[in-house]
């Protein structure tokens, strides 16, 4: 299995552990990643607010850059925001007849060209559909028995494009979590919104969304995420929120790739739980990962 890899800005910055663990886990599962050379920002949610064309041109440039690399058709993006931006560029280019030439015009000076053959895939899509729980289960050396894990999908890997999972009641993580030996914590917040950039622009609103999620997760041993933005929102404000509602809502938040890495018995340097802002170590404590370290 081969994928072109688009890490995105966050994975270079505040979510380096997501990048590191993604690469390690996929390697352990015999998946070959080729990073798109000279990739650039997808525009995040900001480009759309500034210019419609720019919001497509920035991601499309990366798709075009990927096309130039090899005949591999799939681009893998672990960041949901990047995934959605790239996906939208893919879809718009495919369905809007005028869009493709317009986009190509934007980056023609760079010598890049987009034909529409690339498929943008989320990490979760690849893990659940291509690799599959069975293959992961076969590779689990350190089952996370007894752990209750709340799968948190967020919005953008599910919506608005229905690609690999039910956009309202996602289930794709369930089999993966179960494959690690952990239990799926039953809740209704898996597809809820974390408020995204509200945490910066409308802090009060964002906080109340995150609070609701953290409250619902009470009883779980960890929340698993697949998006740096969600991840940051869920783990960075736990102290403040706990303080606000006079309740301890602290909970380990780990990336799916980290969770899988633990079960596959990868080393700490491969998954970097130490970089998590939440008390991820609490979650790994007692699990076999300690032994590896």
């Amino acid at each position: 299995m081969k994928y072109l890899y688009y890490p995105g800005c966050s994975l270079e910055g505040t979510s380096r552990e997501y990048d590191i663990s993604t690469r390690s886990v996929l390697k352990a599962l015999d998946v070959e990643l080729t990073e798109i050379p000279d990739w650039t920002c997808c525009g995040a949610s900001a480009a759309a607010s500034v210019s419609a064309l720019l919001s497509l041109a920035l991601p499309a440039r990366n798709i075009a850059a990927a096309e130039a690399v090899s005949d591999v058709n799939d681009i893998l993006a672990p960041c949901s925001a990047c995934y959605l931006n790239l996906k939208r560029a893919e879809e718009e280019a495919r369905h809007g007849a005028e869009m493709l030439p317009r986009l190509n015009a934007v980056f023609e000076s760079e010598g890049l060209k987009m034909t529409g053959r690339m498929r943008v895939r989320h990490l979760l899509d690849v893990l659940s559909q291509d690799i599959g729980a069975d293959r992961i289960r076969r590779n689990v050396s350190h089952p996370l028995s007894g752990k209750r894990v709340a799968p948190y999908y967020g919005c953008q890997c599910l919506r608005p494009y229905r690609v690999f999972d039910n956009p309202e009641k996602p289930v794709s993580m369930n089999a993966l979590i179960e494959a690690t030996g952990a239990q799926v914590f039953p809740w209704h917040m898996g597809a809820a919104c974390c408020g995204a950039s509200h945490m910066n622009t409308h802090a009060a609103v964002g906080t109340s969304l995150v609070t609701a999620i953290l409250k619902a997760a009470r009883g779980a041993d960890a929340i698993v995420t697949v998006c740096p933005m969600c991840h940051m929102n869920l783990e960075a404000y736990q102290d403040k929120i706990s303080q606000n509602c006079h309740d301890n809502l602290r909970i380990p938040v780990v990336y799916l790739s980290q969770l899988l890495g633990m079960a596959l018995g990868l080393s700490e340097t491969d998954i970097r739980l130490d970089m998590n802002l939440s008390e991820a170590a609490v979650f790994s404590a007692g699990s076999s990962i300690v032994a590896v370290r």
Binding site: C9, E12, G13, D38, W39, T40, C41, G43, A44, S45, A46, A47, S49, V50, L54, L58, S197, N200, T201
Partner: peptide
């Protein structure tokens, strides 16, 4: 927020 973000992108290709 968005404008400054885009400034950053324009400057580096990626966001710092």
């Amino acid at each position: 927020f968005y404008r400054k973000f885009m400034e950053s992108v324009r400057r580096h290709g990626r966001v710092r």
